[in-house]
Write a protein that binds this DNA or RNA. Sequence first.
DNA 1: TCCTATGCTTAGACTATCTAGGCATAGACC
DNA 2: GGTCTATGCCTAGATAGTCTAAGCATAGGA
Lengths: 110, 110
Amino acid sequence: MRRSPVDYLHGTLETLILKTLTGGPRHGYAIARWIEEATDDTFPVEEGSLYPALYRMEKKGWVDAEWGTSELGRRVKLYRLTRAGRQQLTSDAAAWQAFASAVTRVLVKA
Amino acid sequence: MRRSPVDYLHGTLETLILKTLTGGPRHGYAIARWIEEATDDTFPVEEGSLYPALYRMEKKGWVDAEWGTSELGRRVKLYRLTRAGRQQLTSDAAAWQAFASAVTRVLVKA
DNA sequence: TCCTATGCTTAGACTATCTAGGCATAGACC
DNA sequence: GGTCTATGCCTAGATAGTCTAAGCATAGGA
């Protein structure tokens, strides 16, 4: 029963998306590709997870969305980090570090 | 919207339980207390999560259960790590490290 | 007597994920 | 012209692990 990194993904996707958007506005597809590349394809970002996550985040006021055009001339929905989203990222990153270091500490414990 | 460590817990509970049992057989209640103490109360282990997790793990053959008596003279169900459980822990711990380091790498990225 | 800590069980709700389908178009290739 | 791949968004339903909240039982201390 191999546990894939994805099994742990719960809750971290939104944080990773927030982080992605600190590089400037991006559309969904680009966000997915960026995360995959940044993690060396450690986890695939499924569209069925990505888009619902973006809607939740828009609803919570962490991102703003507006329709635009990609470099390739396609119609895309651009997401931009709001001030609230930036604050959330700061808080999320700290919460993640606390969680990750606690788990690691336990797993490494003699 | 404060993100509590628990939001990230998904999937890690079983791994933490496996680790707990490397210290010898323990009953559910003791497992919960050990994890909470080992993480400096960073996350509470709810009974509604713990016991179902133990049943899943027994079903998967990672642990064996048998009724016994606690130091306090109470009837307790003791869980013991199986060989398969020990292997699972090795695999889980590696998967966790891969996941955690990938996420941390992204969040720290300039 | 009452309260707390110990200890196990489980039904149902919640929610974030994945599966899998749909739709649309640009560009490359044959 | 036709086909295939990459790009791009949407969403219904299934899955699965968590939490809430209740029940049950007993030992020990105040």
